[in-house]
Design a binder for these strands. Structure first.
Lengths: 192, 192
DNA sequence: ATTCGATCCTAGCACCGCTAGGCAAGCGAG
DNA sequence: CTCGCTTGCCTAGCGGTGCTAGGATCGAAT
């Protein structure tokens, strides 16, 4: 029986290796460079092994996205819990969100730009995604303002952050003015 | 000499056909379905003909993006010029922007999600893109509020619209509540 | 020791973006 | 009117992609 346990452990270990390697490769050279061949070579297994863990490349992207969502949720919670007062929390949240996107572009892409085959905004959304949204909701809900649904407010604020993150990284917005943009966003949107 | 003119005309005509066909195919079946082979077959020429007009697939995407930018700029101008007062203009602008993105998803992707090899936010940005941003600036600049740089305000508002557009279309946001989101955005961000 | 099942690799499919090289049609020159 | 040449186009193919079928190998259980 313990033999089987060991094999399961090794298998789970290898799955983590695949996801970590995919993420690393994507972060180093972009998702275009993450091919099944290269990935297989890096983990020192043959290509078909990948398909014994995941249905296809899309699912690997999805796994990276889930990891990233958990990480982002933790980062947001850490930042907001260290801030005093609603306004400081929202500002910290916004800065942390944008910084996460800027420092982990490949992971951010996996979460929001690429198709990882994940469900969103419905009941079978994976827990890490729900939790990341919950982290946003915790700090943003308290500044939604009277008569404004916290969920709706969170969606709009989140969309603004997402727009800033993607447009900046794609070169559509010059990156220097990030800070004044955040201030404007918080000043206007949040009811403090 | 007129023979040469005719040939140039025919060549330009064919280039328009390529771009229009690429757009059509992308809108019908998504950009993944726009392969050089399929595109060549649809225009009833062989693959290499595409490369006598464009350096590669990326440039074809870029051409679709430029077309789309011109169209979007026109739509925004039409909507805002038909509205009375700054607030009505901003609301009309936001609705029109989101509607354009929702009705022309492939074109919107070409403009903002895919790599069309276009320069942004610098001097050699193509005219249609500058013009589309100018159309945003015209209506948004007048509601930036005192002491807020109109360009900065436009960037933030645009980012919010872009975020709403992409997150909605990717299934990250439920599409039903678009209208209240727009109202919230205009209410809070615009100084009317 | 032998059987048998799980595990993994080699090889290959259909498709991708892109390009080299040759053929044929249409032009101007004699 | 014919010849040579340029121009424009197509066939064929290269190296890459995601993914899979089928066989070899290795270890556990009898």
């Amino acid at each position: 029986m313990s033999v089987q346990k060991r094999k399961e452990r090794e298998r789970a270990e290898r799955e983590r290796l695949i996801v970590a390697t995919a993420r690393e490769l994507a972060e180093q050279q972009g998702w275009d460079a993450v091919t099944t061949r290269r990935l297989a070579e890096r983990i020192e297994y043959s290509q078909p092994v990948l398909y014994s863990h995941f249905r296809g490349k899309r699912e690997i992207i999805g796994a990276v996205a889930l990891d990233g969502a958990a990480e982002m949720a933790a980062a947001l919670r850490a930042a907001t819990s260290a801030a005093d007062g609603p306004r400081a929390r929202v500002t910290a949240l916004a800065r942390t969100y944008l910084e996460f996107a800027a420092r982990n572009p490949a992971v951010y892409d996996a979460m929001f730009e690429l198709d990882g085959g994940l469900a969103f905004a419905n009941e079978d959304t994976p827990q890490p995604l729900k939790d990341a949204f919950a982290a946003l909701l915790e700090s943003l809900g308290e500044v939604a303002g009277d008569g404004v649904h916290p969920g709706l407010f969170t969606e709009v604020f989140w969309a603004a952050l997402h727009g800033l993150a993607t447009l900046t990284r794609a070169g559509r917005l010059p990156p220097e003015d990030t800070e004044p943009r955040v201030e404007l966003l918080v000043d206007r949107l949040a009811m403090v």
